[in-house]
């Protein structure tokens, strides 16, 4: 009974942004994602939860085709962004990634100045006509990343010289600077203190006004606080997907219940 995904209950019919059907991911012989079908709504925060190694990051990376950079990875099934198959050979993954931004589990600032880190994406995509346009974009992104106050006097210093938590917020600023339609965040707060975490959660809430956000988190509280939809992954299967409130108060699947109450690690 568990092996059959209850496809219909995972499908919603509101403003659809991303629609995944029967997605399989293999790393060589490892079957990392099994038959996952999920609909991600626009202007919504969707949380992916589940024990370590269950495939949350893997599935997240399918949505902006970052798995293309891994030689051994193989993906089957369909993922549609605004009704368009992103794995269609006609789709340019570079264009796709400009629309679907990503923040990684570990901060990875470029060895450039703080300013250039944030300006990198906008410059590549020709988003600013003048230098002052670019300055504005950088400032707005850094403010949204909740790091502007800390770095406004040292924009030309290298981004690698910041603390781990500051680097992560810089990476968030860098990702939002290109104004993606979907923002994928892989445990964005795992290196942050409670204050910065609160700021990032505030940012996520704000982004929801315009974008669709997918966040992987190990913190149940965080998932409950920021997300409207929650998906629970276990051993490569999508076990349960639904409104956050319902998943946390009234889970349908015994595995979800034991994970939320702390019995599956």
């Amino acid at each position: 009974m568990y092996d059959l995904p209850q496809t219909d209950s995972h499908v919603i019919h509101e403003d659809l942004k991303v629609r995944a059907r029967d997605v399989q991911v293999y790393y060589g012989a490892t079957h990392a994602i099994k038959d996952v079908s999920v609909d991600i709504a626009d202007k919504t925060v969707t949380a992916f939860i589940g024990p370590s190694g269950c495939g949350k990051s893997t599935f997240l990376r399918c949505i902006n085709r970052m798995n293309d950079t891994i030689d051994v990875a193989r993906i089957e099934g369909d993922i549609l962004l605004d009704g368009e198959d992103i794995y269609d050979p006609a789709v340019d993954p570079v264009q796709l990634r400009a629309r679907v931004g990503m923040v990684f589990q570990k901060p990875n600032p470029f060895p450039k100045s703080i300013y250039d880190n944030v300006a990198y994406g906008p410059k590549i995509h020709g988003m600013a006509k003048t230098k002052s346009d670019l300055d504005d974009i950088v400032e707005r992104a850094l403010r949204r990343g909740a790091i502007w106050e800390e770095v406004k006097d040292r924009l030309l210093e290298p981004g690698t010289g910041l603390s781990g938590g500051q680097q992560q917020r810089l990476c968030i600023a860098r990702a939002v600077a290109t104004e993606p339609e979907v923002l994928l965040m892989d445990e964005p707060c795992s290196a942050l203190d409670p204050i910065a975490t609160a700021q990032v959660e505030e940012l996520i809430d704000e982004l929801r006004q315009n974008y669709s956000v997918v966040i992987v988190t190990h913190s149940m509280q965080q998932a409950a606080r920021v997300s409207q939809k929650t998906a629970f992954f276990h051993l490569g299967n999508l076990v349960e997907y639904g409104d956050t409130g319902q998943i946390f108060t009234n889970p349908q699947d015994p595995r979800t219940e034991s994970y939320i109450t702390g019995r599956i690690g």
Binding site: M66, V94, N108, A175
Partner: peptide, 22 residues
């Protein structure tokens, strides 16, 4: 580190942009 390449690709950079600029 590979993470720098990933970071650049995730921002929608092409391979040669990534090589040249990162």
């Amino acid at each position: 580190p590979q993470s720098l390449r990933d970071g650049s690709y995730a921002l929608g950079a092409t391979q040669s942009e990534t090589i040249r600029q990162v």
